[in-house]
Every structure is written in C-alpha cells, then in structure tokens.
Amino acid sequence: RPFRVCDHKRTIRKGLTAATRQELLAKALETLLLNGVLTLVLEEDGTAVDSEDFFQLLEDDTCLMVLQSGQSWS
C-alpha cells in the first residue's frame, strides 16, 4: 500500500509502499537516512500509529511522520 512519509521537520518527503507497519518503518529508516528507534505518527495531528491493527485501517496515501527518539510532532 502507498504512503507519504516525512521527517519531523517536514523537509524530506518520500512516497513509500509497505504492507505492514514494521515494513514501513524499515523502509523509512533506510530512505530517510534515520537511525535508532522510530515512532510513526499521522502528519496531520500527531496521532501515534503504534499498532498493526490501526496501521491496517489507514487509507492509501496517508501522510505519516517518522520521529526519532527525543523528537516530537509539531
């Protein structure tokens, strides 16, 4: 499924495809050149996407933000 993913400053944006939350996090880690533990949130309001069940309910092309440890949505 297609998703739009950005870093916490919204300066890097990438289109990625993934079937699972874990797959998307792995691709974001590599594509956005990030490291460490990542958190996935909705870009629009910062809602945490912390379960596979919730991830599977997201629509195609949902905009997501990837946060590294110590970063927060704004």
Rank of each mutant, 00 (worst) to 15 (best):
R1L: 01
P2N: 15
P2S: 11
P2F: 15
P2H: 15
R4P: 04
R4F: 15
R4M: 05
R4C: 07
R4Q: 07
R4H: 10
R4G: 05
R4W: 05
R4Y: 15
V5I: 15
V5C: 04
V5F: 04
V5M: 08
V5S: 01
C6E: 00
C6N: 01
C6A: 04
C6D: 00
D7G: 06
D7P: 00
D7E: 02
D7T: 05
D7R: 02
D7Q: 00
D7F: 00
D7H: 01
D7K: 02
D7I: 08
H8P: 06
H8M: 10
H8R: 14
K9H: 09
K9L: 09
K9W: 05
K9P: 03
R10F: 06
R10A: 04
R10K: 04
R10N: 05
R10M: 03
T11F: 11
T11H: 09
T11I: 11
T11A: 15
I12H: 10
I12P: 04
I12Y: 13
I12M: 15
R13I: 15
R13N: 12
R13Q: 15
R13E: 10
R13M: 15
R13P: 06
R13T: 15
R13F: 15
R13D: 05
R13W: 12
K14L: 09
K14H: 09
K14N: 06
K14I: 13
K14P: 04
G15V: 14
G15L: 14
G15T: 14
G15W: 14
G15S: 14
G15H: 11
G15E: 09
L16W: 02
L16I: 12
L16Y: 04
L16M: 13
T17Y: 15
T17Q: 07
T17N: 12
T17A: 09
T17V: 13
T17P: 04
T17W: 09
T17M: 15
A18Q: 01
A18R: 04
A19P: 07
A19L: 08
A19K: 13
A19T: 10
T20C: 07
T20E: 01
T20A: 01
T20Q: 01
T20I: 04
T20N: 09
R21V: 04
Q22M: 15
Q22A: 10
Q22W: 05
Q22R: 07
Q22E: 08
Q22Y: 10
Q22T: 11
E23L: 02
E23P: 01
E23T: 04
E23Q: 09
E23S: 05
E23Y: 00
L24H: 02
L24Y: 00
L24I: 11
L24A: 05
L24M: 06
L24R: 00
L24P: 03
L24C: 10
L25I: 13
L25R: 03
L25A: 04
L25F: 05
L25H: 07
A26I: 10
A26T: 14
A26S: 14
K27Q: 10
K27G: 11
A28S: 13
A28Y: 02
A28G: 06
L29R: 12
L29C: 10
L29D: 09
L29I: 14
L29F: 14
L29W: 11
L29E: 15
L29P: 15
L29A: 14
L29H: 11
L29G: 15
E30T: 11
E30K: 14
E30S: 15
E30H: 11
T31P: 11
T31W: 10
T31L: 12
T31E: 12
T31K: 12
L32S: 07
L33D: 12
L33C: 15
L33S: 14
L33K: 14
L33P: 13
L34T: 07
L34M: 12
L34Q: 04
L34R: 02
L34K: 05
L34P: 08
L34A: 06
L34S: 05
L34N: 01
N35H: 10
N35E: 15
N35Q: 13
N35W: 05
N35M: 08
N35D: 14
N35A: 12
G36Y: 01
G36H: 08
G36V: 14
G36R: 13
V37E: 15
V37A: 11
V37F: 09
V37R: 11
V37K: 13
V37T: 13
V37Q: 13
L38E: 14
L38R: 02
L38Q: 08
L38S: 10
L38P: 15
L38W: 04
T39D: 08
T39F: 06
T39P: 07
T39I: 07
T39K: 11
T39N: 10
T39L: 06
T39S: 11
L40C: 11
L40E: 02
L40R: 03
L40N: 04
L40F: 06
L40W: 03
L40Y: 02
L40K: 03
V41C: 07
V41S: 03
V41T: 06
V41I: 06
V41A: 10
V41L: 04
V41Y: 03
L42G: 00
L42N: 08
L42M: 14
L42R: 15
L42Y: 06
E43L: 01
E43G: 01
E43Y: 02
E43T: 00
E43S: 03
E44S: 13
E44T: 12
E44Q: 10
D45M: 04
D45K: 01
D45A: 04
G46L: 01
G46E: 00
G46Q: 08
G46N: 01
G46F: 01
G46D: 01
G46I: 06
T47N: 06
T47H: 07
T47W: 03
T47F: 05
T47Q: 13
T47M: 09
A48M: 13
A48W: 07
A48N: 14
A48F: 09
A48Q: 12
A48K: 14
V49I: 13
V49G: 03
V49P: 01
V49Y: 00
V49S: 01
V49L: 03
D50H: 08
D50V: 06
D50R: 06
D50A: 08
S51D: 13
S51Y: 07
S51E: 09
S51F: 04
S51G: 10
S51I: 02
S51C: 08
E52D: 08
E52I: 04
E52H: 01
E52M: 00
E52W: 02
E52S: 00
E52L: 03
D53S: 11
D53A: 08
D53Y: 06
D53M: 09
D53R: 09
D53N: 08
F54D: 12
F54V: 14
F54Q: 13
F55K: 00
F55Q: 01
F55W: 05
F55T: 02
Q56L: 09
Q56D: 11
Q56R: 13
L57M: 12
L57I: 09
L57K: 12
L57V: 11
L57Q: 14
L57Y: 11
L58G: 03
L58T: 04
L58F: 01
L58W: 01
L58R: 02
L58A: 01
L58H: 00
L58I: 11
E59L: 07
E59W: 04
E59C: 06
E59V: 09
E59F: 04
E59Y: 06
E59M: 08
D60I: 07
D60E: 11
D60Q: 13
D60T: 14
D60A: 14
D60R: 11
D60W: 09
D60P: 10
D61S: 08
D61Y: 06
D61Q: 10
D61H: 11
D61V: 03
D61M: 08
D61F: 03
D61G: 10
D61R: 07
T62A: 15
T62P: 02
T62V: 14
T62N: 07
T62L: 03
T62R: 09
C63E: 10
C63W: 06
C63Y: 08
C63K: 12
C63T: 08
C63L: 11
C63D: 09
C63F: 08
C63G: 12
L64D: 03
L64C: 04
L64Y: 03
L64G: 02
M65I: 02
M65R: 06
M65P: 05
M65S: 02
V66Y: 02
V66C: 05
V66N: 01
V66A: 07
V66E: 03
L67G: 00
L67K: 00
L67F: 02
L67Y: 00
L67R: 06
L67P: 01
L67N: 05
L67I: 05
Q68M: 12
Q68H: 06
Q68S: 13
Q68V: 09
S69P: 15
S69M: 09
S69I: 09
S69H: 11
S69L: 10
S69K: 14
S69V: 10
S69E: 14
S69A: 15
S69N: 14
G70H: 09
G70I: 13
G70V: 01
G70W: 05
G70S: 06
G70L: 04
Q71S: 04
Q71N: 05
Q71V: 02
Q71H: 04
S72M: 11
S72E: 13
S72D: 06
W73T: 02
W73S: 03
W73N: 08
W73R: 03
W73I: 04
W73L: 03
W73H: 06
S74Y: 13
S74I: 06
S74K: 12
